[in-house]
Write a protein that binds this DNA or RNA. Structure first.
Lengths: 338, 338
DNA sequence: AAGATTAGGTTGAACGATAAACGTAATTAA
DNA sequence: TTAATTACGTTTATCGTTCAACCTAATCTT
C-alpha cells in the first residue's frame, strides 16, 4: 500500500507538504511543487487513508442513512420503494459533497449512537421514522447532527424535512369535493402511525369542514395493514348500505390495495368508488385505472435534507429547523366526476 | 471521547489487556479481569474507534454495495425496488456478521477502486451490473473480494450469484406452451443488456424447440425501454394481422407496461393476450390482472452472496465461484388457457 | 528437582495522516 | 537601512488501536 510517506519521499519534500496539497492548503505550497506532487500521486494512484485522517481529525465524512426496522420484521425498510429512492438520491447528493453514506438499520437508539461513535460519523439522516419511543430517544440523545425526514417533533429541538401533509390531505379531499363527491371515506395504515398521518387526516377534516361536512365514524378506516388492508377496506365498503362515493388513502400502496379489493367485489373504480392515493410512487402509475394521487418531489426532499445537514455540520448552533415541502395533485383515472 | 486508555486506567490494567478483551482473546486475560473490564466499558458506553483499529489492522469491516449508474442518469438504481430490497437484505445479513455497509454509486471502475482503498474495504457486492466495459474493468482490476449479482463473466475469474435465467425463460415459455399457446412473443428492455437477458432468451428458444417451434423475428421485441416500452410493444401487437397469443417479458415492469398498453388499445389480458413477467416484484401483485411471473427469492440471493463474500474474505484463494439459484412460476391471472 | 510450559499479563513501536508551532530566505514597508 | 512580512516549507507530537516480543510467577513433566 502506497502512503503519503512514499509520495513525499519521491517528491523530495516532507509529508506535511504532501498533506497540504491533499487538503488544498494553497498558501503553504508553491504551484510548481504542488504540480510535481500531484503528478506523483497520479502516477501511483495514491489515495489518502481515511482511517488515518479521521483518527486525528475526528471526522470521517461518513453520513449514516438510518433505517428503523419494524418491530420483529427483519429487513429494513429499503423494501419500501419510496425509501429506496430517497436513499438513492441522498447517496448521490452526499457523494457530490464528498461524503460517504453508510446504511444503518436499527432497532434501538443505543445501536445507532454506538455506530456513530465507532465511526465518528459527521451526521445522520433518518428516513421513515416511526412514532415510537426508539426514534424519539435517538433524536433526543444524539450529539451529532440528525435530520429527520417525514416527522416533526414539536416538543424537541430537531432538524426535520416534511411534506405539507395537512395541505396534502386537504388538497386530496378538496379535489374530490370539487368533483362533486360528498361522501368521502378516509383510510390509513397502522404501521405508519406518525404526525404524517395525523396531519393528512386533519387536512381531510378541514376540507370537509369547508363544505360544511364532518367525517363519519364508519367511513374512517384506520389501523389497517398495508398489504391486506386494501382488501379489508374494500370488503367493508362492499357490505355497506350507505356507501361512500370516494376514499382518500394515505398511501399509494393502500389505495392500490383498495382498488384491487374492489375489483374482486364488483365495485367499479372509479364508477362506483373514486380513490385518491398519496405519494405518486410507481404503483400509482402501474395500476389500472391509473391512480390519482397527491404527488411529492422526492428529489427535492433529499436535496433539502442534505442542505440542512450540511449547514448543521458547519454550524453547531443550527439544531432546530423545519422545512415543509409543497405537494400537488397528480391526476390520473381513479377519480370520477359526479 | 472515551478511549481504551481511560478504560485501562480505571481497571488498573494496560491498554493491551483491554484490547484483548475487546478482541475476545480469552487466553490472555483471566475471567475476573475480563468481567471487571467489561463492566467498566458498559458503564461508560465505550465503543472502540474503528479508524484506529482499521489503521493498524488494515481492515475496516466495511463492505461496499456497489450501484452502477446509468450513463447520464443521475440517481443510482436504488430507485429500482428490486435493488432496494436486495440492498436491504444485504445490509441486514452483513450487520449480523458485524460488517458495515457503505453505499457506493459509481460511473467508472477507478472511482470504486479509489473508495475501496480510501476505506480499506474488506469486500464489495455489485448489484444490477451492466454489460459494459466499466463493470468488466472493475471485476478485472479489483484486489479485494467482489461478488457480482446477476451477471456471469465466463471468461474471467469471478464470484457471482445468478438466477438460473435460462431455466426461467424456459419455464415461462413452457408454462405458456402447456396452456396451449403456440404463438409466443418475447420482449426485453435494452437497458438491461446482459447475460441475464441472453439466458432468458435462450431458455425461451429452447422451450419453443421442444415443441418443434422457432422464434419469429416480428414477435421479438428487444431494445425497448422499460418505461415506454410496454406501450410500444402493445402498439406493435395491436397493428399486427397475425398476432401472438402470449408474450414473455423479461421483467415485471415491462410486462406491466404491456398490460397497461393493451388496456388502452382494446386488447384484453388475458383473453386476447396472455402475459408472463419475470421477478415477482411488487408491481406483479398490484396490477390487474395479477401478473403470472417467474419468481425468485431475493433474500436467498442476498444470503448466498454474503456467504460467498465471507468465504472469499477468509480465503484469498477463493476467487472463482458461481452460484445459480432456482426459480419457479408464480401463477396469477395474466395467462389464459387456450 | 530441574527444566519446560502455561496463565496472565506488560511494553514499546507502529499504522498513516494532521495540528500546531517553528524555521529561513526573499521581498516589502517605513 | 532595518524591521516586518510573506512565501514556502519543516519538525515534532499526537490521534486510538493492535502487533510482536517480552516478562514473571505458578504449575506441570519426567
Amino acid at each position: 500500500m502506497i502512503t503519503i510517506k512514499d509520495i513525499a519521499a519521491e517528491a523530495g519534500v516532507s509529508v506535511m507538504t504532501v498533506s497540504n496539497v491533499i487538503n488544498h492548503n494553497h498558501a503553504r505550497v508553491s504551484p510548481a511543487t504542488e504540480q510535481r506532487i500531484r503528478d506523483i500521486m497520479e502516477k501511483y494512484s495514491y489515495v489518502p487513508n481515511m482511517a488515518a485522517r479521521s483518527l486525528i481529525s475526528k471526522s470521517s465524512r461518513i453520513i449514516a442513512v438510518l433505517l428503523p426496522m419494524w418491530h420483529g420484521s427483519t429487513a429494513s425498510m429499503l423494501r419500501d420503494p419510496y425509501a429506496g429512492q430517497l436513499a438513492g438520491y441522498l447517496e448521490e447528493l452526499l457523494r457530490e459533497r464528498e461524503y460517504y453514506v453508510m446504511l444503518c438499520s436499527f432497532e434501538n437508539a443505543e445501536q445507532v449512537l454506538q455506530v456513530q461513535r465507532t465511526w465518528q460519523m459527521d451526521g445522520m439522516i433518518l428516513i421513515l421514522p416511526h412514532e415510537d419511543p426508539v426514534t424519539r430517544e435517538l433524536v433526543q440523545k444524539t450529539q451529532k447532527p440528525l435530520v429527520v425526514i417525514d416527522r416533526r417533533y414539536d416538543d424537541l429541538e430537531t432538524l426535520s424535512v416534511c411534506l405539507d401533509d395537512r395541505a396534502g390531505g386537504c388538497l386530496a379531499t378538496q379535489y374530490l369535493l370539487k368533483k362533486g363527491h360528498r361522501k368521502i371515506a378516509f383510510a390509513a395504515p397502522s404501521i405508519y402511525e406518525s404526525s404524517v398521518i395525523r396531519d393528512r387526516f386533519e387536512g381531510y377534516r378541514a376540507a370537509l369542514a369547508e363544505y360544511g361536512l364532518t367525517e363519519r365514524e364508519d367511513w374512517l378506516f384506520d389501523n389497517v395493514s398495508l398489504q391486506a388492508g386494501g382488501e379489508a377496506v374494500a370488503e367493508a365498503i362492499s357490505r355497506m348500505s350507505d356507501r361512500p362515493t370516494a376514499v382518500v388513502a394515505t398511501e399509494d400502496l393502500l389505495a392500490c390495495g383498495i382498488i384491487k379489493g374492489c375489483q374482486g367485489r364488483g365495485i367499479q373504480v372509479p364508477m362506483d368508488l373514486s380513490v385518491m392515493g398519496f405519494d405518486d410512487s410507481m404503483p400509482a402509475r402501474l395500476i389500472t385505472p391509473g391512480l390519482t394521487t397527491v404527488a411529492q418531489d422526492i428529489r427535492e426532499k433529499a436535496d433539502q435534507s442534505v442542505k440542512m445537514l450540511m449547514r448543521a455540520i458547519e454550524d453547531p448552533s443550527f439544531r432546530n429547523d423545519h422545512r415543509v415541502l409543497g405537494v400537488r395533485v397528480k391526476e390520473r383515472q381513479s377519480v370520477r366526476e359526479l
